[in-house]
């Protein structure tokens, strides 16, 4: 599930930059950094993936305090947070990617 992993990975990046919570549009924007992805992720694809991640326990969500959107005259945001399991899943995926990259590199440059 590459999209789910990409969402968790971007959420982990946001967390590193001090943003603990993010909303759907924010993560969709983050995902446009991916190669071959100029358009924002489709509504159906994005929110289905976010829902699945929540069911899997990698994300959790809450609706923001209704006073904030009322004050800013905008619709309320559903805010997602990467859980501890989500962080662990990202770390594991990154470790795996790094090890497969190094294996590939060793194979390419290994003496015949």
């Amino acid at each position: 599930m590459p999209l789910e992993l990409a969402i968790c990975s971007r959420a982990a990046d946001l967390l590193q930059h001090g943003s603990r919570e993010f909303h759907g549009y924010e993560i969709a924007k983050q995902l446009t950094d991916l190669p071959n992805r100029r358009l924002l992720t489709a509504y159906g694809t994005l929110y289905r993936a976010l829902g699945r991640l929540e069911v899997m326990g990698l994300l959790r969500s809450r609706w923001e305090d209704p006073e904030i959107p009322a004050r800013e005259s905008r619709p309320g945001r559903r805010l997602y947070t990467l859980t501890v399991q989500g962080e662990a899943a990202v770390a594991a995926a990154r470790r795996e990617a790094a090890s497969s990259m190094s294996t590939r590199g060793r194979r390419r440059y290994a003496p015949a």
Binding site: A42, Y43, G44, T45, R48, G51
Partner: peptide, 17 residues
């Protein structure tokens, strides 16, 4: 156009959901 493309590309996932 962007909004409409996001809508159309997600229809299958909406239905699956």
């Amino acid at each position: 156009v962007h909004i409409l493309l996001r809508l159309m590309r997600g229809v299958a996932d909406d239905l699956r959901w």
